[in-house]
Design a protein around this nucleic acid. Structure first.
Lengths: 333, 333
DNA sequence: CCACCGCCGTGAAACGATTCATGCGCGGCT
DNA sequence: AGCCGCGCATGAATCGTTTCACGGCGGTGG
């Protein structure tokens, strides 16, 4: 593989000069520069980032480690992060832990060994050992979609308690008194918080709440939940799902069973992914500003890895969710 | 940052010994090994992959560069690739070019500078300059979801002509004679091939074909297409969409306009992403084995980057698509 | 004519790991 | 006793860059 030495020889200059041409073109004379550039071109020289990085001590790559790339919510976060990274001349690589702590650990140690600039992290388990060992690597990280105490790390999240409350209030206000909450696994803070929000509203109302917990936050689990809902008596007239994938699964299950939505069952989802609005019965959903989440997280990370010597202060950014009402809860009378 | 030297000093051994403990534990005596390991533990030493890689000349990372992570089809490819990479002790990083040639170039040069083990590539434009410069870096690459001549590179794809034909034949067989094909941008080989498949069937039938081209392969474009379809006269009784995102958009537009699916309009999608089966009117779709695509591509790449000296031969793997019939084309009479 | 300065280019010293030839001590064999 | 071989640790060379102190050279001002 052709290196800077080969270019130097070909152009008849020293390697220092080649490096200057590549990194600080203005310090080298026009004629030399032209000679070096054409040598680079002829030889097809590609700079070796590992050597560069070894010297520099830091990489130009920022990582995003998400829970589930199959959930478009996280893809939107990735897009947001990429946008701001691009502005800073950084690259983002995306890793998918697929809700498996084991893969999370594996990726984290890979990223630490790579000495990435920083990691945007939506972890399976905050308190876990995964993070404990990663923390020792001194690589800065920012939590995304998960709030943590500011003394531990910066974080960017959306207020899930409020989000849960928004959904619950909407259902109460549209007259439902028999309400189900289809929740994901309780290990996820997001799920616990959304449930807390729901309870805070429903406990103060006349409505009755049933909570169904699923093992995954995906469409298949939603279908399972639909089956369970169909077997309940009295059957709920409204259901709130901890995310849109679950909601879409429930919707499908209901339509398949001939239950009319929203007339016989109102459905509210969470995240407001594109597919929610695009469902045949467009879903009412609690919107999270995913893109802004990604942008903000990347900005915080960049701030933390800035040139300045002083330790930057940790920040906790919390966005507010927003209820988007669509046909799946629209009164038809 | 703590390096191998610090560990060596702490354990009272040479750096060579530390390296041996990490890489070939069996060659160092148990007592020394224990001493080194505890030094590593105490200091929180994390190996610097850039130094390691500089020496080794190759990285342990394989990249996947896809057209659009927002399309679950590509997420499934990523999953497949990750599976086989994991077995080989490699890591996969995923990059999203978002259909932008510019970002594709930017990622490719980043990956070349990283001396990535190889790249799985679903390029915006095969013939483009992006690849031309990348090719000079001598990093092996395999095309995914795009067939190329075997002398250029290995590729793993699905037969799109057959896929288009499958969908068209299904519509003809279910009695439709006024058929629309909602296609994506013709720059994409996939789109051209699917259209060719459709034509091959419909030209030999009594059915009439209208082709609508959209600018993007996403849900919003599908909605736009729905509006256009509604304005046509005679209005088609069946529509085949170049992918499921378009189909979901069309479906939504139709339901919103009060058009009954499949009674007034049958819809066929392509890819068979999870959301297709989960739509309120589950979509008939042409299934592509996305996961196997990813697995196969990763395997080919690994074979090409094997230890053996001899140049491995290029391979062209073509999978067969499969029609999955669901409610969106089911005869209701 | 000398001293100085600015412009360019040079060469060598890092960076942090891996690898390999070498050395050392010790037990066993002749 | 002498020699060999084995097990284990060492230290130096190496990978491809960046960076920086230095120096040559031509021009300018005194």
């Amino acid at each position: 593989m052709v290196g800077i030495k080969d270019v130097a020889r070909r152009a008849g200059v020293s390697i220092g000069t080649v490096s200057n041409v590549v990194n600080r073109p203005q310090v080298v004379s026009a004629s030399t520069r032209a000679r070096v550039l054409s040598a680079i071109e002829e030889l097809g020289y590609v700079r070796d980032e590992s050597a560069r990085q070894l010297r520099a001590g830091r990489s130009r790559i920022m990582a995003l480690l998400v829970l589930d790339l199959g959930n478009p919510f996280f893809v939107d976060i990735a897009r947001g992060a990429e946008e701001t990274a691009q502005d800073e001349g950084l690259h983002v690589i995306t890793c998918d832990s697929g809700h498996q702590a084991e893969r999370e650990v594996s990726y984290l140690s890979m990223l630490a060994e790579q000495r990435v600039r920083g990691v945007l992290l939506s972890p399976v388990d905050t308190s876990g050992a995964a993070l404990e060992t990663f923390r020792r690597s001194e690589i800065p990280y920012v939590f995304v979609d998960r709030r943590v105490p500011a003394d531990e790390a910066s974080s960017v999240s959306v207020d899930d308690v409020t989000g849960g409350a928004l959904a619950a209030r909407h259902l109460v206000e549209t007259g439902h008194t028999e309400i189900a909450f289809v929740n994901g696994p309780a290990i996820l803070a997001q799920c616990r918080d959304r449930e807390a929000g729901v309870r805070s509203v429903l406990d103060a109302s006349a409505a009755r709440l049933s909570v169904l917990e699923t093992s995954e936050l995906d469409v298949a689990s939603g279908r399972d939940a639909a089956a369970r809902l169909l077997g309940m008596s009295p059957r709920p007239t409204a259901v709130f799902c901890a995310n849109d994938l679950l909601a879409l699964g429930v919707l499908q299950g209901m339509v398949a069973a001939g239950v009319r939505v929203p007339d016989e069952l109102a459905i509210v989802g969470y995240d407001d992914i594109e597919f929610a609005g695009a469902a045949a019965v467009p879903l009412t959903s609690v919107r999270q500003p995913a893109r802004r989440l990604g942008k903000a997280a990347a900005e915080l990370l960049i701030a933390e890895t800035g040139e300045s010597e002083r330790v930057p202060e940790r920040q906790t950014v919390v966005f507010e969710p927003e209820l988007v009402v669509r046909a799946s809860t629209r009164l038809t009378r």
